Amino acid sequence: MNWKDWMQQIDEALFISIHQAGSHEFLDVFMLLMRNALTWVPLYLFVLFYIIRYRKNKALIFLVCTLITFAIADYGSASILKPMFQRLRPCFNEDLQGHLRNLIECGGRYGFPSSHASNHFALATFWFLSLRSIGIRRWWWVWVWALVIGYAQVYVGKHYPLDIVGGAMYGFLVGWLISRLFIWWNQSGFRLIRPNRRLDALT
């Protein structure tokens, strides 16, 4: 048995254990809610309010970097890495059909890495490191947020655990890189919108 088959067996065993031992009607509803993008709209609005309220002069660059982080994580995972690895989702594995509860439609054929995990770990990493660099701490909870969303993807049957791990690693790399860009922008004094000195002189 080669290492790929060995990792696949471990991944399937973890997937089955989650679906057999960890399933519950209440969790079904909760996990479906956690992976729904609309659930997190209040969080995104909170982040927007927070950065404008406490670091207004950094808000524009922070929001631009947030959008860049999401765009790179999402495009890279969905359009580059998934076609590259071509790893089938659990719902396309005939050996697992008896363990799937069909809480949600299968979706695309390929699942590695998880785009949900990539996107949310990228945002969590960027937010945590960037806010920390400008003196805003205690945002550790963004890691819990990303972990819950990643686990929900396994729970509803969309991904194997290693799909989440791969997505988290890729997302962390993207978030770290864009946080370095934000820190550079912040330390260099670069502004997306230059002040109008002529107007300032007249007022």
Rank of each mutant, 00 (worst) to 15 (best):
N2M: 05
D5V: 10
M7Q: 04
I10N: 12
I10M: 14
E12C: 15
L14S: 06
F15R: 09
H19P: 09
H24K: 03
F26C: 01
D28L: 06
M31W: 08
M34R: 02
T39E: 05
P42Q: 14
L43G: 06
N57K: 15
N57G: 06
K58E: 15
F62G: 00
V64K: 15
I68K: 05
T69V: 15
I72G: 03
D74A: 11
Y75S: 14
G76L: 07
G76A: 10
S77R: 01
K82T: 01
M84E: 12
C91T: 04
N93G: 07
D95G: 15
Q97F: 10
L100W: 06
R101I: 00
G107V: 03
G107R: 07
G108K: 06
H116D: 10
H116M: 06
N119I: 04
F126K: 05
F128C: 07
F128W: 09
L129P: 01
L131F: 10
R137C: 02
A146M: 04
I149C: 03
I149W: 02
G150S: 11
Q153T: 07
K158D: 07
P161R: 07
I164P: 09
G167M: 04
G171T: 02
L173A: 09
L173R: 00
S179R: 09
L181A: 11
L181E: 03
F182T: 09
G189N: 10
R191P: 04
L192N: 11
P195W: 08
N196A: 04
L199R: 15
L202W: 08
